[in-house]
Amino acid sequence: MIQLENLVKRFGPIVAVDDLSCTIEAGAVVGLVGPNGAGKTTTIRMITGFLPPTAGSATVAGYDVMQQSREMRRRIGYMPETTPLYPEMRVCEYLDFRGRLYRMPRRKRRQRMDFVIDRCGLAPVQRRVISALSRGNRQRVGLAAALLHEPEVLMLDEPTAGLDPNQIREVRQLIEELRGRQTVLVSSHILPEVERTVDRVMVIGHGRLLADDTVAGLRAKVDAGEELLLEVATDPAALRRLLEPLPDVASVDIKGRDGWAQAVVKARNGTDLRPAVASAVAGSGWTLREMRSRHATLEDVFRKITVDTGTTAANAPDAESKTPQVKGARQ
């Protein structure tokens, strides 16, 4: 549905997007994730045809974004980062205007307006002037406008920025409901938000695609096994002596605090260490206060990939690409 080939965008000497290639299938819900300034917005703007790429090409729904721009634009719904709206218009007037821009016939327009107003929870405010709306309601108006013309591809740039937790959940639910019917590309710099909604995550940093995988796949890449956290009332050194000889233990990291030893145990080959560790601790007679296993969250993945690229050089395509200067010198 979306196909990017060696997409590059330079603003003078600054390389905002550097050689980005990927394919997104129809119906997929994909998260575009990276720190601020990574090139997420620039990438989305190029896919929507708002910014022309410096090099490379992008195809959406089979149409080239530059050559067949208007055909392509009919098929996308786009909500930009800050949800820009015309403050002096009423909500229903704005939606009506958007419908007209897509040449929707009157009846169809009415019908779709009612649908999106209902779906985005705008019924109570539909007669209000946009400038009088709260941040959350404005976001809903932006979302409603993007959905109005039944786009095949929906692109949401930071749809949850500035919303409270309840509103974030609403947006997430809405995206869930669109799953399968529309291709959705959603960008965010906060990982847990997309972690739960997307099928696939594309991590970008400094304009480059650093990782492109399912949520589970990404986790597996960064952290092979799961971690076991436990707190035992004993001396750290004693706990280390107990845990290290256990089979399949890859590493043990122990800190002592207020008479409690806090250990992080990593397993080899994805083994479940819980039974072995539990019986070992029980056998020693020490008081066990806590034991839980922890999966790597996307947050960990994110930090690993975007910050310490050096340690995961195998996963990241190019660890050096962190500074634009290095990039410039290489080309």
């Binding site: 708002f50 208007r70 009919r74 786009y78 820009p84 709206l85 015309y86 958007r98 821009l101 406008a145």
Partner: peptide, 14 residues
């Protein structure tokens, strides 16, 4: 300034 140009220009208008 307000960014509405982005929503306007990504609609099928010239």
């Amino acid at each position: 300034r307000s960014g509405t140009i982005e929503t306007l220009m990504t609609a099928p208008v010239t």
